[in-house]
Amino acid sequence: MALPLPSGLTHAEVAFVAEMELVTVVPRQRLESIDLLGGKTPSLRPPHRTDLPLWLALLLKKQRRANILPPAWLHPSSLAEIIRRETRDDPDAFSPPPPIPSRADPSRPGFAARQQGLDSTQDGEDGIRISAPFRGSACTADAPAGYLPYHWLEVAEALLTHAGDDIAGATAGGTTTGGGGTGSSAGEVRGLLRDLVEVRAAKMRSSTARLEGFGGGLMSLRGVGAIELAESRGFVLGVVDGVRKVGASAEAARREDEEEEGGGVGGGRGDGFGEEESDEDMGI
């Protein structure tokens, strides 16, 4: 009965989580509200837009009961902008995650407050912070262009596979670069996504060069996506754990030194140990 999978989410599990992201649909049929475990669905009346979880939107799409409005960041011009930023402006880091939306602060009229995921009515013990995939503003039609949300690749992939015509329809009107017919537009998005995947995969690989000297205790991967984490989790965590095990005795010695000398002069000796350790590394 016990789960035989290694720790960390697998690709299939990440895709499952991504299906909880909200997307915007335009219903083609009326559908009364359904009482689900996750709360009542809004009742659908064409042509009013509604936000639904991706799994439900795909179900409606397959039955031709609704069309999906792709998020703004999936537009070719937005993707091209992100690729430009990833390759030219900042070739080392991932492009930043979407900004946290602000809302009017009711307690101080005229001021805007960053919309915290915190449930304000239940502050304290039961308050829970909401994060992806439940933020709700990452993959809907209102999502900001030019920023990739946490589940970008999974959502884009699902939309291209099951709602390719909606993506073509939404982008055909807007493209100025002249994608031509509607058919090539989904192809254009697909091509841009592939470029983006490659650019970012190269960054993930080169970040492992930083791992080689994972002497410090932290490494930030700001802006990374869920599937990219799943992809390289085994390797990255394996390297970090390996470095720790190889350097365990050096680390213990450094800590002892720091304790003895109160941390002041310990720096120099610590460096010495670091070199010794990397020599050992090469020997292996």
Binding site: P97, G216, G217, R222, A250
Partner: peptide, 24 residues
């Protein structure tokens, strides 16, 4: 704020909401 112990040095940093970090 977040602190991580490493082999050569210990590090401390400020994490912003949504940041992803590797640590022990």
């Amino acid at each position: 704020p977040v602190e991580g112990r490493g082999v050569d040095t210990d590090e401390a940093a400020e994490m912003q909401e949504g940041d992803i970090v590797i640590l022990r």
